[in-house]
Structures are given as structure tokens and as C-alpha cells.
Simulated scan of single mutants.
Amino acid sequence: MNLYDIILSIGFCSHTAVGILGNSFLIWLFLFMLLTGHRLRPIDTILAQLACFNSLLLLSKGIPQTMAALGLKNFLDKNGCIIVFYLHKVSQGLSLNMTCFLSGFQAITISPSSTRWSEFKARAPKYIIPTSSLFCIAHLLLNIIVLENVGGLQGSKNHSELHDYGYCSGIETAKVSSILFGVLVSLHDAVLIGLMIFASGYMILLLYRHHKQNKYIYMANLSPKDSPKIRAIQSILLLMSTFVSFYSLNSILISYMYLRKPRPWLIQCSSLLSICFPTFSPFVLICSDSQLLKYCCVFWGRNAPDI
């Protein structure tokens, strides 16, 4: 094993371990609060599902890539390849959908009651589970294409028709089909990211207006920099910039790889980028969400601070 493989294995292993630890803690935190009789926010249901899908994404992508980087090449047969790729595509799509859903739900929640969204705002929490179930069913059905376009190297007669992903391979389809599939995937991601940016921008605008209207209150008690509204804006910008940065870079790499036969280092970079947001998102949420910090204090048996 050369130095490059060692560095690569350390990168995948550390990302996967830290990400699974963070998301598992977030899931356990919600379960603990629920089992001990504490009242959870409606948005916590979305956060818990996002943590579950991020964990599945890390398990289906990070662990196989780590094993491949450690020298265990092509250890999955055709059925193993199909299962891993299918779980990865489903969890990746659901992670994007739930992040977009989170932004939209937050925007509806903080919208003024006098707007036309007021009636829907009151009923929005009831739609969380049905909407999440619809997302799951849609991605389970749409990603069936993976079952046809993935195969193991061991069962291949023509290795030149396959892209080697280290632990298994993906069948290289016809040029037109590859371009069409890449365009559809990119369009789907672009629409969801666009909706996410719009919802986040709407929230920032509302919080900015609210802050200006109550500026004299903040000036009398604390500096604008330390106000809860400013901290809320910063947390939204931080989560959004984290997601959009990693996802945009990965989308660019994926689009390029659909057009040309990818080199191994491009595949590895794309794989590493695809698990960056699932790795860092639980820590971004815990550090920026004051309610989650209170949950942590309750979990550790300490008095929750006034945040």
C-alpha cells in the first residue's frame, strides 16, 4: 500500500467514523428526549430523519470506499454491488430532499401569521410524516435504474465497459443514455437546491426585517451581534453554505464523469465530497441550534442555559 492509499483510507475512515458518531448521537438524543417525556418540536422529526438518511449514506458509501482504499479491491459480487449502490443512491437523494424539506418547513414556520400561508402553517406539522413517506417511496422506485446499471467486476466479460469504483463497478451505458441521465439528475438537484436557497433567503429576509423592527430592544439589552435573531441567521447561512458548497462541487464532478470516462482520483474525490455534508451536518446543527444545545444539556444531566 503506497502513501496515497494510506492518506485516502485515513480520509474515508475518519469521515465515516465521525459522521456516523455525530448522526447516531443526534438520533439517540431525539429518542432520549422522546422516551423521557420531553416535548419535541415538529422540526425535530425532520432532523431525526435527516440524521438517519445521512447515516445510511455514510454506511453505504464511506465504509466500502474505506475498505477499497485499504487494499480490499473488488470484494463485492454483483448482488453486493447492486445493494450498496442502490442504498447509496436512495440515501443520497433522500438526504437532499429532507434538507430541502427542512428549509421549506422552517420558512413556513417563521412566516407571519397574517400571510396567506397562515392556514397551511397551522397544519404543516401534520404533513411531515406523509411527505417524508412520499419522498421515501419515490426514491425507492426511481432508483430502480441502479439495479440494471450496476454489476460486479467478477461477473464481467468485458472490463472495458465498466467503471471501476474500487469495491465494485458501474456499467458504462450508451453515450446518449449517460448524458440524458446526467442531465436529469443535475436538473433534479438544481431544482431542489434552488428551492432551498429561495426558502433560506426568504427566512433571512424575514429575520432581518424582524430585527430592524425590534432594534431598539436589542440596543437596550445586548449588542445586535449577540441577538438570537442574528444567531439564527448565521446558523441558516452556515448550514446552507455547507450543503451547497459540497453538493455543488460533487455535482460538477459527477456531470464531468458522465461525459467522459472518469479517472480513479476523480471517482475518489467525488466519493469523499458526497460524504462531507453527512459528516459535518450533525455538528453544524448541534452547535447552531439553541434548542438542540438544551437537549444536550438535559441528556448530560445539566441545567439548560438560557440561550
Rank of each mutant, 00 (worst) to 15 (best):
L147G: 03
N74A: 11
L140A: 12
A124F: 10
L249S: 14
I128L: 11
P224Y: 07
R41L: 08
I10T: 09
C287N: 15
C269V: 05
L102R: 05
G170A: 13
R260N: 13
N97T: 11
F246L: 11
N54M: 02
L141S: 09
Y295H: 10
H163C: 14
T99C: 08
L94Q: 04
K225E: 09
G80V: 04
F32Y: 13
S169T: 13
L147C: 07
V191I: 15
R41S: 08
H88G: 07
Y4C: 12
F198L: 07
S111Y: 10
C296P: 07
Y4T: 14
S186A: 11
Q268T: 03
V150A: 12
F299S: 01
L140H: 09
F53G: 00
S241P: 00
I275T: 00
T242R: 07
L187N: 01
L153D: 03
I83A: 10
I286D: 05
G19L: 01
I43S: 13
G93N: 01
L292I: 13
R231L: 03
L34D: 09
F105A: 06
V150C: 08
A68C: 09
L292F: 13
R39Y: 05
I20A: 04
R123L: 10
Q213K: 13
T279Y: 01
H159W: 05
G22D: 03
L47N: 01
N149R: 14
P42G: 12
L237R: 09
N303W: 12
T242K: 08
G93Y: 00
S251Y: 00
Y4F: 12
Y165N: 07
